[in-house]
Design a protein around this nucleic acid. Sequence first.
DNA 1: ATTAGCACTTTCTTGAGATGAGTGCTAACG
DNA 2: CGTTAGCACTCATCTCAAGAAAGTGCTAAT
Lengths: 353, 353
Amino acid sequence: MGTRKQGQDIDERMQMVLRGIVDSYIENSEPVGSRTLSKQLEVQFSPATIRNIMSDLSEMGYLMQPHTSGGRIPTDKAYRLYVDSLVVANQLPNSIQSHIAELSKLGTTAPVEVLLQNTTRILAGLTKFVCLVTAPKTEVSLLQRIEFIKVSARKVLVILVTKSGVVRNKIIDTPEDFPQDFFNTISAFLNDQFQNRSLQQIREEILRSMVEDKERYDQLLAQAVRLGKKAFELDEREEMYMEGQFNLLKNERFQSTEVVQHLMDAFEHKSMIMDVLDHTVRAEGVQLYIGVENESENLRDCTLVAANYRNENNVLGTIGVIGPTSMNYQHIIPVVDYTAKILSQAISEQAYD
Amino acid sequence: MGTRKQGQDIDERMQMVLRGIVDSYIENSEPVGSRTLSKQLEVQFSPATIRNIMSDLSEMGYLMQPHTSGGRIPTDKAYRLYVDSLVVANQLPNSIQSHIAELSKLGTTAPVEVLLQNTTRILAGLTKFVCLVTAPKTEVSLLQRIEFIKVSARKVLVILVTKSGVVRNKIIDTPEDFPQDFFNTISAFLNDQFQNRSLQQIREEILRSMVEDKERYDQLLAQAVRLGKKAFELDEREEMYMEGQFNLLKNERFQSTEVVQHLMDAFEHKSMIMDVLDHTVRAEGVQLYIGVENESENLRDCTLVAANYRNENNVLGTIGVIGPTSMNYQHIIPVVDYTAKILSQAISEQAYD
DNA sequence: ATTAGCACTTTCTTGAGATGAGTGCTAACG
DNA sequence: CGTTAGCACTCATCTCAAGAAAGTGCTAAT
């Protein structure tokens, strides 16, 4: 035998073997050899036969051998095939479903921040991996309300509340020592003008109106626009919640200090992780980035399982789990999927309208 | 040699040796033996003499031997003596001073949250240990402003701004579907009534007024008080910033999985850590909790270096660093001390008044 | 009082088998 | 012709013994 018919297609037997290897490796995180596998598979092949198949699979890039003897382990390519066509996700046990559903109870009374924080915690607890949740992008959120609170002679605290329930605040300098009443007038004006517009839109409109109405005589309006510009200015500080970094250490698969080191480095730069998560915003449902599929070098040894959460109108943010490529996909995928759904639901229910 | 005069007092020679041992262990984290030490000490003793002294120190509980041979290491008691009377803190290098002083620049424009977050980051970066910062207790903070923003038929978002610059928000249910105007009246009333009172005080006053004025006829006032009660209700979610958990892993001293495990467990329960930090609120200056001096079991192998930060009137919160008992005290202590000072300064400057 | 010397511990390192699991190849089998 | 048994070979890991390093306690000499 030997020469495979061009290495393209994988017949049923190969699939069985590959699936067996992945299953076994996911369970034990130990390289699996022909003899062991021969015993585990339900349909019996002799170790020799399996060796041949394995040899073919290696050639096709689905398996690799850490040492020339000592069994083989799946490559990222194998995991990709595995999740795409070798297995279907498990039914989520009721106990877990109801655990996640706890979120709904919070939904109605807690601010979004708390909701997201709890999501992170629950997900980290269930998966025993690192869990990430990005806060709704303020960029695309609609303005619910803006409020100015004077804090000293020339400083005023701006509070932005978005429709998605996020409260942002920052301090801006004012050109003069305005009284609080003045700010009340301004905020009334801005609220009236811009409610239900997205922050991005608002910024654009403000810029436009500044250009158009350069010669505006209404002092108050001019002042309002100027303050508004500062208030709505992009602030980089997008938020993210992270939990369970330490699960990784407890995880046997991550004892190799090297990989952990990489991840640690990654976690120190939240922004980097945010970028990765943002990439998933495009698609529906659960997304997988297996090993090398990750754009970030530091995640090359991990799989990122991500899904978006949303309200009726928009994608708001992303939830994600980072674990070893040899994670239990059949379990993790439905967990992430369901959590995203519940979170979407909870956040929609409390939507400010 | 041999029988020490009652084991109470430590003569100068013993101090030298003990200091040498602690210094050496801090630097190399390896048990130090008589021969090595004999070479390192500036005043020369023979290894044998040092052995005798060491033997006495062991008997007095300042040293212990991990193995019957292989050198000795300091006990927590030794570190305590060391920091109390064997060394004085280093002068803080200018480069580090100015690094910390970066905080002041932020101080005037950033909200407190950002300020604290940066403090945590800087301190973690400088010490390479875990760094903790508690947010000002809302309990004792004075009210700057309260604001209600209606978010749905029977829900209203409460925003509390304290004098110390912390913005808190939560959602409360309203008994009826009040219009926003109504809330504006209420918040005007509450602001007028309670500005510059501490949240704790306010709570008490509200309770009192509810008891006294049970038969109050003014509907509006009654409503205001009722909403006020909900708005000012204690919410447990005290905040804390933590950074540098991963520094510990990189740290050679913490390779022993056991200790790390303990710490990880500790870090998972932020509330526990908060409690520990709160204990330091009593005292001025830098506080040390060395090994067993820590109340929490999980910190038994670590030292907590903590200091308060404050504005002119009150202690606001605590900053802390957790590292191995064999940390470089001469360096860490002034770093924490200086950081607390700078933070106090920065937070006072931006104080809302 | 201090120090040199010595016998004794204990850890760490090193290298030599032995073991075990796995592989590739060849030849036999149905 | 696909499948399997057999065999020689390869590594990783374990164990064990020997030896080096570093340290200790004790005794005797200075």
